[in-house]
Amino acid sequence: MEKSVAIEARGLMKRYDNDVAIGALNFEVLQGECFGLLGPNGAGKSTAIRMMYGSSLIDQGDLFILGLNIKNSGREIRSQIGVVPTEDGLETELSVRENLILFGRYHGIEKNLLHRRCEDLLKLVKLEEYADHRVPELPVGFRQRLVFARALINEPRILFLDEPTLSLDPSARQWVWNQIQNEKAQGRTLLLTTHDMEEAEKICDRIAIMDRGKVLAVGTPRELIQRLVGTQVIELQVPRGDLQYYLSRLSSHNFAFQVVKQQVNVHLKDNDDPQRVMNLVQGISLTLRQSGLSDVFFKLSGHDVRDELI
């Protein structure tokens, strides 16, 4: 059975003061999947997600959320989505419970239903004990739980998460990941941005790799890795000066590789024997490891100026 489309972007463009922030984005997110926009800072993923949840205007192109055109159904769309933004905008003078109730009122949720849902959410994010505490009194890392609960108050069909684990400690990160898995299990569509390749690989069904306002590739993490860089990587620490020598040896044997600073990453296809590379570069320290999304990213983005930034 074919799944229906939750988000459809066609030729999305966005400029900031003549700088192109987003250049012609095209992608589809299916209902019930967890879709990740992956890329370094400044790749345009945050602008893209803000356009989708209606906080950023579209200069060109079309965007449909749940079949509705964002240009003329903004309110209707916002009533069916939930957002975990980077700047939480929580009400610091109000209690945890009041924050949820207030947001539910913005959604026009009927009073009794709202109070029931609020208690359920407090339980879900395990903030019952802090319900009457003001936001600044929450333990570090618990704010994000409240932001999560706030995003779920209207039982959204799509949940947008902009860098949900940025600046969280490992246990809070783990909590967010579990929560995302739970929401996915409930059949909710999720769209998140992250610059953390490991995170994307771990929780996303499909990802779009972005850089400089463009989508470089879309697919499941496994598929992207297989297709673009192979399953294994050999990292070579090449002494300065010898780089050209080794690179020409690798090319003449048809090995694909990426140079990242002084390191050469040789991508091995499934049927490649690592021993063949080892024989070619004897005497150099090397490491054999599984390929990851970061290899895909380096390959796609070109590995020039950009790697200084990552």
Partner: peptide, 8 residues
């Protein structure tokens, strides 16, 4: 306000 515009 940025939080408010996430709602309807």
């Amino acid at each position: 306000y940025q939080a408010m515009i996430l709602s309807p």
